[in-house]
Measured scan of single mutants.
Amino acid sequence: AITFRFEGQEKAKKFYEKLMRQNLEATIHIHGDEVHVTVH
């Protein structure tokens, strides 16, 4: 698994949606202002 870190939720959401379109499995974790997107 690879984890990407984002400042702010907007960028993270766009990235997450892009992964979903590519049929990749990903989970999102929100830590205050920092958002972690883990790709499995």
Rank of each mutant, 00 (worst) to 15 (best):
N23A: 06
G8M: 10
K13S: 06
H40S: 08
R5G: 04
I2D: 02
K14N: 08
K13V: 12
Q9T: 11
F4Q: 02
H29F: 12
Y16N: 00
E10A: 09
Q22L: 15
G32P: 04
T3P: 02
K14D: 09
I2F: 11
H29V: 12
I28S: 01
L19M: 09
H36D: 03
E7H: 13
E17K: 09
A1V: 13
E10Q: 07
I28H: 01
Q22V: 06
V37G: 00
G8P: 02
L24A: 04
H31N: 10
T38D: 03
G32D: 06
F15A: 02
G32E: 06
H29E: 13
Q22G: 05
I30G: 03
T38E: 05
T38K: 08
A26F: 14
V37F: 03
D33I: 08
K13A: 08
E34T: 09
R5N: 03
D33S: 12
G8L: 11
R21W: 06
A26N: 01
T38F: 09
E10T: 06
Q22S: 08
A26I: 11
K18M: 14
A26S: 03
T27F: 09
E25D: 12
M20R: 12
Q9P: 13
I28Q: 01
E7D: 14
F6Q: 01
I2N: 03
Q22D: 06
R5A: 06
F4A: 02
E17M: 13
Q9H: 13
G32N: 06
V37S: 00
T27E: 08
Q22P: 01
L19S: 01
E17Y: 09
V35R: 00
H40P: 05
A1P: 11
A26C: 04
Q9A: 13
M20K: 11
E10G: 06
V35K: 00
F4N: 01
A26W: 09
D33H: 11
L24G: 03
V37Q: 00
F6S: 01
R21I: 07
M20N: 03
H36M: 09
Y16W: 10
G8S: 15
V39M: 09
V37Y: 02
T27K: 05
K11I: 11
K13Y: 14
E17N: 09
K18H: 12
R21C: 05
H31F: 13
E10K: 07
T3H: 05
V35Y: 13
F4M: 03
K18F: 15
D33V: 09
I28K: 01
T3I: 14
K18L: 14
E17T: 06
E34V: 12
V37R: 00
N23C: 05
M20W: 05
K14T: 08
K14G: 05
K11Y: 09
T3W: 08
F15H: 01
F6E: 01
K13E: 10
H40L: 12
R21D: 05
I30L: 11
G8T: 15
H40N: 07
A12H: 02
K11M: 13
R5P: 02
N23R: 08
Q9F: 15
T38Y: 10
Q22H: 10
F6I: 04
I30P: 04
F4L: 05
Q9R: 09
H29G: 04
A26R: 02
G8H: 13
G8N: 15
I30M: 08
F6W: 02
N23D: 06
K14M: 12
E34Q: 09
A12E: 00
T38L: 10
Q22F: 13
F4I: 06
F6M: 02
H31P: 00
V39P: 06
L24P: 04
I2G: 03
E17W: 11
V39S: 03
I2L: 09
G8V: 11
V37D: 00
K11D: 14
M20H: 04
Q9D: 07
V39D: 01
K14Q: 12
I2A: 04
Q9L: 15
F4K: 02
I2S: 04
E17A: 11
L24W: 10
N23Y: 07
G32H: 05
T27N: 05
K11C: 15
I28A: 02
E25W: 15
V37M: 03
T3F: 06
K13M: 15
A1G: 12
G32V: 04
E25K: 15
H29S: 14
F6P: 01
F15G: 00
L19D: 00
I2V: 10
I2E: 03
R21E: 09
H36A: 04
H36K: 05
K13Q: 14
R5L: 07
T38M: 10
H29Y: 13
E7Q: 13
I30T: 07
L19K: 02
V37N: 00
F6K: 01
Y16G: 01
I28D: 00
A12P: 00
H31E: 12
H31A: 08
G32S: 04
E7M: 13
L19I: 08
E34R: 06
Q9N: 09
R5F: 12
M20V: 10
E10M: 07
K18A: 13
H40I: 11
K14Y: 09
G8R: 08
R21P: 01
R5W: 11
Q22A: 12
K13R: 14
F15N: 01
A1T: 14
I2W: 12
K18R: 11
L19T: 02
K11N: 10
E7A: 13
A12C: 06
K18Y: 15
R5M: 08
E17L: 12
V39L: 13
V37T: 00
E17Q: 11
T3V: 14
T27I: 07
A1I: 12
L19E: 01
E25M: 14
D33Y: 08
A12S: 02
E10P: 04
K11F: 09
Q22T: 05
M20L: 14
H29W: 13
I30A: 07
T27C: 06
A26Q: 02
F15I: 02
A26Y: 11
I2H: 06
Q22W: 15
E34G: 05
A12T: 01
I30V: 10
L24E: 02
V39G: 02
F15L: 03
H31T: 08
T27L: 05
V39Y: 12
M20C: 05
E10D: 11
V37H: 00
T27D: 07
H40M: 12
F4D: 01
E34W: 12
I2C: 14
L24V: 13
Q22M: 15
Q22E: 08
E25R: 15
R21S: 11
E25Q: 14
G8Y: 08
Q9V: 15
H36V: 12
I30E: 05
H36C: 08
T27P: 00
R21Q: 11
I28N: 00
N23T: 04
H31M: 12
E7K: 15
A12W: 05
H29A: 11
Q9S: 10
Y16M: 09
E34M: 10
K14W: 12
R5K: 13
M20P: 00
I2M: 10
D33E: 10
E10R: 06
L19Q: 02
T27G: 03
T3M: 07
V35M: 04
I30D: 05
H36P: 00
N23H: 10
H40A: 08
G8I: 11
A12D: 01
H40T: 09
K18G: 07
K13N: 09
E34A: 07
Y16R: 03
H36N: 04
V39I: 13
L19A: 04
G32T: 04
M20E: 03
N23M: 07
V39F: 14
V39W: 13
A1D: 12
A26K: 01
H36Q: 05
K13L: 15
E17P: 01
F4C: 13
H40Q: 08
T27S: 10
I2R: 07
G32K: 06
K11V: 11
E7C: 15
E7I: 14
K13T: 09
R5E: 03
A26E: 01
L19H: 01
K18E: 12
I2P: 03
T27R: 06
D33Q: 09
F15W: 04
H29M: 11
A1Y: 14
A1M: 12
F6L: 02
V35F: 11
F6N: 01
K14E: 13
G32A: 07
E7S: 14
E34F: 12
G32L: 06
E7Y: 14
K14H: 08
K11R: 10
F15C: 06
K18V: 08
I30S: 06
I2T: 06
N23K: 10
R5D: 02
I30C: 03
Y16S: 02
N23F: 07
